[in-house]
């Protein structure tokens, strides 16, 4: 794995690092400014979730190159407590940190593909893709 395509999240500052790396990859891939902004917001949400609920984890970027389309895959992995009730956190308006966080439903909306794997007590892995239009 290319070292530069992964950002460790340990402190709040690392969220910015993840955004920046993600935006660079998005630019390289040819995403427009609106999609770049959306991708950056999705990365923020994912990285902030790691920072707030798991403490530490990492955000990894992969370029997906398929026959008919190209996209950016973002994978957020942590070994935190995991999510007990996935359907609850995927509901609009649910945000334990309070306030108007976009939360995971927001990430799902910002991106084209969204998959979550979590086990209570064993951490969470979220994989999400945005395709270049």
């Amino acid at each position: 794995m290319d070292f530069k395509s992964c950002v460790n999240i340990r402190q709040e500052w690392d969220i910015v690092g993840a955004r920046q790396l993600g935006r660079e990859k998005a630019k390289e891939l040819g995403f427009g400014t609106v999609d770049q902004a959306r991708i950056a917001t999705a990365i923020s949400e994912l990285a902030r979730n790691i920072y707030l609920y798991a403490g530490t984890g990492k955000v990894r970027f992969e370029i997906v190159d398929q026959l008919d389309k190209k996209g950016l895959k973002i994978i957020a992995i942590d070994e935190g407590p995991g999510i007990r009730d996935v359907s609850q956190v995927m509901q609009d308006g649910y945000s334990t940190s309070g306030g108007l966080g976009a939360g995971l439903p927001g990430v799902k909306r910002l991106m084209d593909f969204f998959e979550i794997r979590t086990e209570w007590g064993e951490g969470t892995e979220i994989e999400t893709i945005k395709w270049v239009r």
């Binding site: 959306r38 917001t41 609009d92 108007l100 927001g106």
Partner: peptide, 18 residues
């Protein structure tokens, strides 16, 4: 400004969904 508007776009979608 565009970046600053992203959350409003999400809020709009959430509103429609709700």
């Amino acid at each position: 400004l565009l970046e600053a508007m992203i959350s409003y776009g999400l809020a709009l979608q959430e509103y429609q969904h709700l």
